[in-house]
Amino acid sequence: METLLSVKNLCAAYVQGGQRVRVVDGVSLELRRGEVLGIAGESGCGKSTLAQVLALLARPPLWVEQGEFWLDGTIYHLAQEHRLSRELRGCKVAMLPQGALNALNPTARIREIALEVIRAHQPKTTPQEAYARTQERLERLGLPVRVLEAYPHQLSGGMRQRVVTVISTLLNPKVLIADEPTSALDVSSQKAVVKLLRELLEQRVIEGVIFIAHDLPLLRNVADRIAIMYAGKVVELGPSREMVEASRHPYTKALVEAVLVPEPYIRQRRVEGIEGTPPDLRAPPPGCRFAPRCRYAWARCRELEPPPFGDKERFAACWLLEGMSA
């Protein structure tokens, strides 16, 4: 399949008071046309920062230090181009934020918010045009048109998140970066948002989604491939099913084991969480960053950082996999 978006060796850091904390450290990823790529990891692993960078929303104190950003065959140097035009941000790459209530102006009706978004990029649009476009979009996606007249607080959490999804894709961006769009929702509303994203992909409103979440069962269902992040690095990547059924990295395995789903096996044993906390990125440990929490860690893990083993379709960065063919 054709590559839609790719980043190579992306590094981003928060710089404040002379201190530099690198939160995204050498991330390379590819998003294909028509694909949902999932990114999972614990709080503080850098996944939301990565989302900011990918959605071209990085601004001080967050700095992109290096990395190539290829979109549809064009390269953008994020580290140099501090002010990317709105042609790119919002129009080609859009962000679907986490808390829908915080993303919406509480004193504006949905139609006013939609107008504002469209006008920010296409200043000549009349309110009538904007209204018609939003209405048409809602109808096509099977959502009630009456939400246009509503204020954000009048909508349920699930509907609000779907409305934000529609608004953030009004300009037909090629790539949608969804940062935990369903984390605050119950399973039924979650399902509706996921269905909407799939619908947008099928109707070619958008061409690819990067879906960030800490919920593996959700990603297993929504994403075609999953990348696992730990302490700023991608430690494993592969097709969703394989990542769950045949994970290779001890961290991925531990995440999979900690999942609580209503399937009989979980009542038959004690499910263990992952001991300890992710490392302080101000002073990351030498060697493998997961080593301090890893039950398989040995001397080498604490000294040398493991490279990714496998190929670019399916890899894991762990010394245990050295010599294994992918």
């Binding site: 800490h214 900690a258 999942v259 992952i274």
Partner: peptide, 11 residues
């Protein structure tokens, strides 16, 4: 909480 911590709190 993170999924990795949920099991810990429930335990």
């Amino acid at each position: 909480l993170d999924a990795s911590l949920r099991a810990t709190v429930l335990n």
